[in-house]
Design a protein around this nucleic acid. Structure first.
Lengths: 229, 229
DNA sequence: TCTCGCGGTGACGTAATTGTCACGACAGCA
DNA sequence: TGCTGTCGTGACAATTACGTCACCGCGAGA
């Protein structure tokens, strides 16, 4: 699931993009308002694609873009630029600086989505951190497999999503409601034993490392990095 | 030096593009006026990029594009579409069909050039030969044939495209929806057994190596490089 | 027109996956 | 110590996803 960073001052636009992308349920989003925040996010979270509005409050969009290109960590993340009007010089300037695509407002949300999709298709397939490591665990997003102490453990789609949710925030307790929402899309406050059952199945598959998943009574579960006692 | 195929009825445009591209001395060009000629050129000379005007005399540009996408030899050559006006539906239709970029006339020659450059930059590394090798497999894009352990296996066009899609990203799971879109052009989320059937036929033809195509339940399929256990 | 190969569809069987239930264990509390 | 609410667990049933097959339509070529 590719992650997309949206850098835009206007709430309308961010919302528009978010709604249209998330409807496909194949993308996750980050959002940023000013340039510095965007740079920080891009470097720490490594999005697969950046949508960058050139009109930003604190920092000019082109400057943000230049900073992205100057940093080896972000240099080859593709960028789609948005601008107020199709001012040709700006457009050319943007493309010259290495923007991968350029849209003038107002744009059709559908067109943006298609351009996002096309760009990711060309750009994504072979790379992208498909490996997530934490302690002795190594999750392979592509194969839905878990590598643990040399063993290769197969997980089902649900188990994988659940473990991923836990492992993404090690040490943090995730409330039952949040997990249900993240993994199952359940609206909050539902009464079900489904979560417990899947936790149990996960623990079974983790074998001796099953205690990495800790129960926080009355709240939820959390993943411990250095477990196995 | 990447080769670019220009398909356009209007001499002005061809000239405009040619002048601008050749000035950089980094490109070689092919030209075509009508659709059939374009298809022929695309298949025999394998350009790295195609610039396709939708207004063609004998054959509609979208038809040309569809033909390009249907043929495994040309399916992943990137396409930039040109059209008379920024008619939104046409634009969306084009992008949906897998055009990598879309420009409305009149366009700035400089913008086109930059988009060409960006597209080639993203796209080129993988391409080149008509032979794709992976493990004991060797796919010949021109002959639509598969060589495997000395044997020569004939594949139909659909089978070839499917295998190609899988083999292009070894180890990466391709979702059912993506495969349906890539190989069949189906819009997403369609319920059909077509994909399964063709996977089965492929596995049959691969014989003992059939297990190179692995099912990832609930997600899709993926191609394994070192299989055959 | 006939034949043949290809490609797609729907029916069906099977296996994997998932959610629910019942019940027991246990912590927290008074 | 007994009560209460929460969680772990195993069994079970429902659902979903996939593999396989038979069959049909279509277009190319004879």
């Amino acid at each position: 699931m590719p992650t997309i960073l949206i850098v835009d001052d206007e709430e309308d636009i961010r919302e528009l993009i978010a709604i249209n992308l998330l409807r496909e349920e194949k993308y996750s989003l980050l959002e940023a308002i000013n340039g510095l925040e965007a740079l920080h996010l891009a470097k720490t979270k490594r999005p697969d694609l950046i949508i960058l509005d050139l009109m930003l409050p604190e920092m000019d969009g082109l400057t943000v873009h230049k900073n992205l290109r100057d940093d080896p960590r972000t240099v080859n993340i593709p960028v789609i630029m948005l601008t107020a009007r199709g001012r040709l010089e700006e457009k050319i300037h943007g493309l010259e600086m290495g923007a991968d695509d350029y849209l003038a407002k107002p744009f059709s949300p559908k067109e943006l989505m298609l351009r996002v999709r096309n760009l990711l298709r060309r750009t994504n397939p072979n790379q992208g951190g498909s490996l997530i490591e934490s302690g002795p665990f190594s999750l392979d997003k592509n194969a839905l497999k878990l590598h643990l102490e040399g063993e290769e453990i197969e997980l089902t789609a649900t188990e994988f999503k659940l473990l991923l949710s836990l492992i993404e925030s090690p040490g943090i307790t995730q409330e039952r409601g949040d997990l249900l929402k993240k993994v199952w899309g359940y609206s909050d406050m539902i009464q079900t034993r489904t979560l417990d059952t899947h936790i149990k199945r996960l623990r079974e598959k983790l074998g001796a490392n099953g205690n990495s998943i800790e129960t926080v009574r009355g709240v939820g579960y959390r993943f411990l990095e250095g477990a196995s006692h």
